[in-house]
């Protein structure tokens, strides 16, 4: 059950999308998001949808996995869509109704926008290992080091957080199984009862999280870790020709969307 959490999950593979440099993918995601918010007409959305589908195909990511990750967002998506449907002025669908044609159009586009936004982000995390992702981020943000931003520390924290998500999920699963074996019931009862039922999970989870943090700190110190100063990498990142090609495609894509915006397509 908890294993179904897809947040930040990585599906290993050896496709073109997997092989792209993480920096390329991060920049392209930013380009994609900008394009998403520039889209104004159905043709631009069609282009965005086609691009997303193409990357999914290239990266062998099944639509099922994207939709599974969308599930927790369902409430927000439906809520936004409903609000847009009711609060957009225009021609009413039926005389006297509050729902307008413009509202329906807006809410469908809104749904598309949110879904594509999430799908794009998933495509990045599904095809890029957490380590590659944080390394890429660190390199991209390294100019900020000059003005005193602790980039290395920030990305280290991020990679640790990402690294420990699965561990903590596993741990939670284990503790839940153990308490369930002792007759604990997490599924029935009212809100207060259920909140109380979480206590037998949270206490051991926190105890073990602190223990783990302690152990990790000791392990890092005993291997002489002392921050990012002068650190070299085992895996050097190198931009290749496919990265250049992907960049070119991305720029072309953004240009197309901006041009389409001019013509309200």
């Amino acid at each position: 059950m908890l294993k179904d959490v897809t947040l930040g999950q990585y599906f290993p593979g050896d496709t073109v999308v997997h092989r792209l440099d993480p920096r390329t993918k991060i920049v392209l995601l930013v380009v994609y998001i900008v394009a998403l918010f520039q889209a104004s007409g159905w043709w631009s959305y069609a282009l965005l949808l086609a691009a997303t589908a193409a990357v999914m195909l290239l990266g062998h990511i099944r639509a099922k996995n994207i939709f599974k990750g969308l599930k927790p967002m369902l409430f927000i998506i439906v809520f936004t869509a409903l609000l847009n449907m009711f609060y957009t002025p225009g021609r009413p669908v039926v005389e006297g109704w509050i729902i307008t044609w413009e509202g329906i159009e807006r809410s469908v586009q809104m749904i598309l926008r949110i879904v594509l936004l999430i799908a794009g982000t998933f495509l990045l995390t599904y095809t890029t290992s957490p380590i590659a992702l944080t390394d890429g981020l660190e390199r991209l943000m390294s100019p900020l080091k000059r003005i005193g931003v602790p980039v290395h520390e920030m990305t280290l924290m991020m990679s640790m957080a990402l690294r420990f998500i699965p561990t903590l999920i596993e741990e939670t699963d284990k503790i839940m199984s153990a308490q369930r074996s002792r007759g604990a019931d997490f599924e029935t009862g009212n809100l207060i009862r259920r909140a109380k039922a979480l206590l037998p999970i949270l206490v051991p989870l926190f105890v073990s999280a602190f223990r783990r943090a302690d152990e990790l700190a000791v392990a890092m110190e005993s291997r002489c870790y002392h921050g990012g100063e002068g650190r070299t990498r085992m895996k050097q990142m190198k931009l290749q020709s496919i990265d250049a090609f992907a960049f070119a495609l991305g720029v072309l894509f953004l240009a197309a969307i901006i041009v389409m915006r001019r013509f309200h397509l």
Partner: peptide
């Protein structure tokens, strides 16, 4: 379970042992 001591959570030993039968 393996390493079952990591599942202890109550304030006292008595209450922790009592968790199962109480349920």
């Amino acid at each position: 379970f393996q390493y079952p001591e990591y599942q202890l959570f109550e304030e006292t030993v008595f209450r922790d042992i009592a968790f199962g039968p109480k349920n």
